[in-house]
């Protein structure tokens, strides 16, 4: 599938993305984000959360292989959800993290 095995070595890596939530901890963060993801057909593969430098950080790895909406649309929805909860919510394709942190 990929002509560039040195970077994108699997088909699933192409459809995986990382959702990040950064801000003040509050009730309903996971529910809010998970609802948007479920409605979009994005499958949550992994969730982790921690407190770093006084900020709540939640990270979700999602698979968009069966997503019903475009990447851009999902990003817009998540950004808007974040703005409504005074959080920074974003989604980025997984390759960015893979390349930067894995040799």
């Amino acid at each position: 599938m990929s002509k560039l095995p040195d970077i994108k070595n699997t088909a699933e890596a192409k459809t995986r993305a990382i959702v990040t939530v950064i801000g003040e901890d509050q009730v309903g963060i996971i529910a809010g984000v998970a609802t948007i993801l479920a409605d979009s057909g994005a499958n949550i593969l992994d969730i982790s959360q921690s407190i770093m430098q006084e900020f709540f950080v939640m990270i979700m790895m999602v698979d968009l292989a069966k997503a019903k909406v475009s990447f851009e649309e999902l990003k817009t929805q998540l950004n808007a959800k974040g703005a409504g909860m005074n959080l920074k919510i974003d989604i980025q394709r997984e390759d960015v993290f893979k390349l930067m942190h894995r040799v």
């Binding site: 995986r16 990382i18 992994d46 921690s50 770093m52 950080v57 997984e94 993290f97 942190h101």
Partner: peptide
């Protein structure tokens, strides 16, 4: 192999 620590993501 493809899980990332919160530190890396941040």
């Amino acid at each position: 192999s493809s899980s990332y620590s919160p530190q890396e993501i941040v």
